[in-house]
Amino acid sequence: MTLDWSVVWQHREALVAATGTTFLLTIATMVIAVPCGVGVAVLRLYGIAPVRSLATGYVELFRNLPLILVVYWAFYVVPILTGVGLSPLATGLAALALNVTAYNAETFRAGINSIRKGQVEAAMALGMSRAQALRRVVLPQALRRITPVLASTWVSLFKDTSLVSVIAVTELAYVAMQVRAQTFRVLEMLTAMALIYWLLGYPQAKLVDWIQRRYAVNE
């Protein structure tokens, strides 16, 4: 068995670009999924009954489906249903955003609910409206509890971007496996792929640990 690791170096430009795409997907998804998650959470908590049911249905649906299936569904079904043809990248982004928004909505809802009722009562006893109480008393405290979970979601999302490789989005997993197919250097490329993810993901995981320690809440 002869190994030729120079393959990795030869294709470094493609791999670096692909890594960039991976980061881009992660960031873009979060940029969409955080505000949308807040929106859905607020609808679930404070909306009128039919809106609450709809929001809950959305969250429960996407938390109970494999992401890879959502990716395929978005790629094959959405163009037929809507007549709009999106690029693989946009489709992948849409699937990721739909998925992460649901998780974020649950995170925000649980975070807000974890604040004791007494805090809202104390704020209202001063004469604040519910909206003011939410803004000035509940959300600042809820953010402390939400931040570590959001950080954890970020790391999961970073790994999940590998799933959009199945619809030929040129992120890291897809490009690495393309190079493998072209050069037949299976062990080298697959190990390199794992190693690159490890190099990128390990520090992120450690950062999440630090965030969880720093924002630990003791009641």
Binding site: R116, G118, Q119, E121, A122, A125, V137, P140, Q141, R144
Partner: peptide, 13 residues
């Protein structure tokens, strides 16, 4: 009206 609670309910942040 001013209200004072048994559990104080100061805003911790």
């Amino acid at each position: 009206m001013g209200m004072v609670f048994q559990s104080f309910e100061l805003f911790p942040h």
